[in-house]
C-alpha cells in the first residue's frame, strides 16, 4: 500500500488551520495534514476532538479562520467559485447517508453529474448502473432510499459520490449509524475502493479497517493533531500519551 506514496503527488495539504465556532470554542488548533495521491488516511480520536470538523473543512462545509488548505492545486479561499470547483472534485460520505428521499436510487446518482457537469442523462445512467453493480445493489436502482436498509443506503451514497468521478473521497464516520450486521458490507466497499487507488480520508472508529486499509493513522484530541503514524506502529506502539489512553479506552 505504501508504494502509492512513491507517486508523491500531494492531493491535500492543510497548514496551520485554526477554526473558532461562533460561540468562541476553539475547535481546530493549528492542524497540519498532507495526503498524497492514492493514500488512505484514517483520522481517529475521542468525540469532540474536532476530527469531523477538520474533515468538513476539506470541502468547505465548515469554515476556518486562519491557515490554508490546498486540494488538488486549488486553494480553498473565500471565493465561492473555488469552493464549488473543489466540491466537484471531492466526494463526501456522511454518517446519516443523506440520500435524497424524493428521488430513486438511480436519480440520486445521476442528479449531480447531469446538473453540475452538464453530462447527457443516458450516458450518466449507464455509468450509474455500473457503479451500483460495483457496490452490489443494481437491482434496487429504481427503488427509493426509504425502501433500502441502512447498509444499502450507505453503499448508494458511496456510489453517488463516485458518479461525480472525484479525485478525493471524504468519509465522515460512515458506519456509525449502521446496525452492527451492516457495517461489514460498507467497509468492504471502502476497502475495494482503496485497493483501486482512490485517495481517501476517513474519520472512523473501526480499528480493524484502520489496521488493514490505512496507510497512515492520525490521532486528534481537543482540536489538535497529536500523532501521525503508520497503522502497525500506531496500534502496537503509540507514542503520544493521549494515543495510549485513547487506544486503551476503545480496546
Amino acid at each position: 500500500m505504501t508504494q502509492a506514496l512513491a507517486a508523491d503527488v500531494v492531493m491535500l495539504e492543510a497548514r496551520g488551520v485554526n477554526t473558532w465556532y461562533p460561540n468562541g470554542h476553539h475547535a481546530l488548533r493549528n492542524v497540519d495534514l498532507t495526503v498524497h495521491q492514492g493514500e488512505v488516511v484514517v483520522i481517529m480520536g475521542p468525540s469532540g476532538s474536532g476530527k469531523s470538523t477538520f474533515l468538513r473543512t476539506f470541502n468547505g462545509l465548515e469554515d476556518f479562520q486562519t491557515g490554508s488548505i490546498i486540494i488538488d492545486g486549488i486553494n480553498i479561499g473565500d471565493d465561492l467559485r473555488q469552493r464549488d470547483a473543489i466540491r466537484r472534485e471531492v466526494g463526501m460520505v456522511f454518517q446519516q447517508f443523506n440520500l435524497f428521499p424524493h428521488l430513486t436510487v438511480l436519480d440520486n446518482l445521476t442528479l449531480a453529474p447531469v446538473l453540475v457537469r452538464g453530462r447527457a442523462k443516458t450516458q450518466v445512467e449507464r455509468q450509474a448502473l455500473e457503479l451500483l453493480e460495483r457496490v452490489g445493489i443494481h437491482e434496487q436502482a429504481h427503488k427509493y432510499p426509504g425502501q433500502l436498509s441502512g447498509g444499502q443506503q450507505q453503499r448508494v451514497a458511496i456510489a453517488r459520490s463516485l458518479c461525480m468521478e472525484p479525485r478525493l473521497m471524504l468519509f465522515d464516520e460512515p458506519t456509525s449509524a449502521l446496525d452492527p450486521e451492516m457495517v461489514q458490507e460498507v467497509l468492504q466497499v471502502m476497502q475495494e475502493l482503496a485497493a483501486g487507488g482512490m485517495t481517501m480520508v476517513v474519520v472512523t472508529h473501526e480499528v480493524r479497517f484502520a489496521r488493514q486499509v490505512a496507510d497512515r493513522v492520525v490521532l486528534m484530541a481537543d482540536g489538535e493533531v497529536l500523532e501521525i503514524a503508520a497503522p502497525e506502529q500506531f496500534f502496537s506502539n503509540p507514542q503520544h500519551p493521549r494515543s495510549q489512553q485513547f487506544l486503551s479506552q476503545i480496546n
Binding site: 462545509l61 466540491r87 456522511f94 442528479l111 449531480a112 453540475v116 459520490s161
Partner: peptide, 12 residues
C-alpha cells in the same frame, strides 16, 4: 444533511 449532501456534490 440534505443541503450538505447537495452542496458537497457540487450543486450551487
Amino acid at each position: 444533511g440534505q443541503v450538505e449532501a447537495a452542496r458537497s456534490l457540487g450543486l450551487n
